[in-house]
Simulated scan of single mutants.
Amino acid sequence: MIYEAEFWVAVAFVIFVLGLLKLGAHRTVTGALDDRTARIRAELDEAKRLREEAQALLAEYQRRRAEAEREADDIVATAKAEGERLQAEAKTKVEEFVARRTQMAETKIAQAEAQAIADVRNAAADAAVAAAETILVDTVKGKVAGKLIADGIKDLKARLN
């Protein structure tokens, strides 16, 4: 057994491990492992904190988005109501405009009709006066005839106008 290589490898290994323990290598290794554990724990804590912040930020942005959607819906509803109001107002104005234009057209037509009637009366009066003058000139002669004609013409014009 003493001559076997495995025995001496085992003895060397035990001596090596005892030497490491004597030099305090186990404290260095455990310290390094503890430091690494602490560093990993700190990273995990930081990751957890960052995740919570991200979730809070996400919730804030979702709230803002919902608020913006509500505001957009309100704006659309207001714009729609305003459009309907403007449409009704425009319709009323157009109806009033058409009524005014119709009234103005009817007034102009009535004035033109009255003017046409007056023109026809004047033309008829002038024609009647001319005819009466011609008839009276042919039938009545002298100064009396001229005076009668003039008085008749004035009287006729006054009556017909």
Rank of each mutant, 00 (worst) to 15 (best):
M104W: 11
I15H: 04
D35M: 11
A125I: 03
K108N: 14
Q115P: 07
A10V: 15
G19W: 01
Q55K: 14
D45I: 03
A25K: 14
T30F: 08
A105H: 07
V29N: 11
R121N: 15
L57C: 12
A125C: 00
A116Y: 08
T107D: 12
A127M: 07
A123N: 09
I40S: 11
L160W: 04
F7P: 01
E4C: 10
R159V: 09
A12H: 12
A79M: 03
E6H: 02
A32D: 12
D73L: 05
V98W: 00
K91L: 10
A131C: 09
T102H: 07
A131L: 07
E71F: 04
F16N: 09
V120S: 00
A128N: 00
F7N: 10
K157V: 04
E89A: 08
E4Q: 09
G24S: 06
E89T: 05
R121Q: 13
A88F: 12
R100T: 02
I2L: 10
E71V: 01
G146L: 11
D155G: 14
G146V: 01
K157F: 06
A132M: 15
E53D: 15
A77M: 00
A79H: 00
A32T: 13
R101F: 13
D151A: 12
A150K: 13
K157C: 02
A66Q: 13
I135T: 14
A110K: 04
E4S: 11
A118F: 03
L160A: 08
I149P: 03
Q115H: 11
L57I: 12
T28K: 13
D74I: 01
V17F: 06
T28I: 15
F97S: 14
V98I: 14
K93T: 13
L50Q: 11
K143P: 11
D74A: 07
L57P: 05
Q55S: 12
A158P: 03
V129G: 01
I117D: 09
A5I: 15
A158E: 03
L21R: 09
H26N: 13
V137L: 03
T92A: 06
Y3M: 11
L33A: 03
A125K: 00
A12R: 15
E71Q: 05
A130L: 06
I109F: 11
L18H: 06
K154I: 14
R70L: 10
A77V: 03
G83E: 06
R85L: 07
D151R: 14
G83P: 02
E71P: 03
E133A: 14
E71N: 10
